[in-house]
């Protein structure tokens, strides 16, 4: 931890200071610090900086905060730590460096978790995303019995083998910050690190949103429109994918793709719309599988397109 920081910027006092400390740490490891992707998504993994950049041979090191929306996890602001909107901090390094575990432990030190007094453990947890056609092996990282991060070596994304493999770290920011700040209710987190009048809590920023969105997600979200949006996103994704392929004029073989990113946006959209429909309880058990399958097919097609682009293709 940087001792020169003013009190209101210290990670154990300030939620934003906590985020800034992580960003600074990973910037020093050579990561590009991105800003959140400007679309609704269920996890930082959906950000094209992870899903698409994990594919292909080119090195890639990035870190970013991603607001994550899980409509089903909404609790109208009444649960101390469950929310339909929260922050993930995501790190992706391709190829995975040999000292990724050490880097991770150092990042914990940077946010005030001292491995001499805490019990930090790597507990088996294999990761799989059926909607992204992705899986990897790794751990959930425990600090004193609490899961604080997810650590994954991606093996496959969008149905393609990762070559080379990327290492992915996901920090549950609120939970970690609650631990470091010593509060039991997420809404009590000190957001800006100030005291008295100047203090802004997490609840000041997000409690009203949790109430409103829980109502929206569970009770009011327009399902007719959402069903329609799903179809439209799916169709648009396919359309952009088709339009993006550049074929060899003689053999007709697909050689390059010029629109993988816009197509993938529609896949992200379809996935989030599906999550909203799911929260509204209008998708039956059997339909659920088929929706997941449809999103996965989009993700796979986008992955294939990406691997024919400049950033995703052969070096």
């Amino acid at each position: 931890m940087d001792a020169s920081l003013p009190a209101h910027m210290r990670p154990e006092r300030s939620f934003q200071g906590f985020i800034l400390a992580l960003q600074r740490f990973w910037a020093e490891q050579g990561c590009v610090i991105l800003q959140p992707y400007d679309m609704e998504m269920g996890a930082g993994t959906f950000h094209p900086a992870t899903t698409l950049r994990a594919l292909g041979p080119k090195p890639w090191n990035a870190a970013y905060v991603q607001p994550s929306r899980r409509p089903k996890d909404g609790r109208y602001g009444e649960n101390p730590n469950r929310m339909q909107h929260y922050y993930q901090f995501q790190v992706i390094m391709k190829p995975s460096p040999p000292n990724l575990q050490e880097l991770y432990l150092k990042s914990l030190a940077a946010i005030g978790i001292d491995s001499a007094v805490h019990d930090i453990r790597f507990v088996e947890d294999d990761w799989e995303s059926p909607t992204l056609g992705a899986w990897g092996l790794g751990w959930e990282c425990w600090c004193d019995g609490m899961e604080v991060s997810q650590f994954t070596y991606f093996q496959q994304v969008a149905g393609f083998e990762c070559a080379p493999v990327a290492g992915e770290l996901t920090y549950g920011l609120e939970r970690l910050a609650m631990y470091v700040q010593g509060v039991d209710r997420v809404y009590d987190l000190n957001f800006n690190g100030r005291d008295g009048e100047a203090k802004v809590t997490y609840g000041d920023v997000f409690l009203q949103a949790e109430r409103e969105y829980s109502r929206h997600n569970f009770e009011v979200a327009d399902t007719t429109m959402l069903f329609e949006q799903f179809k439209m996103a799916e169709a648009a994704c396919k359309k952009y994918l088709d339009a993006g392929w550049q074929k060899n004029s003689e053999s007709g073989k697909r050689e390059a793709h010029l629109m993988a990113l816009p197509a993938y946006d529609q896949c992200i959209k379809a996935s989030h719309v599906f999550n909203l429909l799911d929260a509204r309880g209008v998708i039956s058990v059997t339909e659920r599988q088929s929706y997941i399958f449809r999103v996965r097919e989009l993700a796979k097609a986008c992955g294939e397109a990406w691997m024919h682009t400049e950033a995703g293709g052969a070096a």
């Binding site: 041979p57 190829p95 995975s96 460096p97 040999p98 294999d126 990897g136 092996l137 790794g138 070596y153 093996q155 990762c162 070559a163 080379p164 493999v165 290492g167």
Partner: peptide, 23 residues
């Protein structure tokens, strides 16, 4: 029962598979 690839070598075919990175 489940093994994985890792690191720079995983970009090439024939890289070692182990349960987690072998050091």
């Amino acid at each position: 029962p489940k093994s994985m690839r890792w690191g720079a070598r995983s970009g090439k075919p024939g890289s070692l598979n182990w349960v987690r990175p072998l050091h």
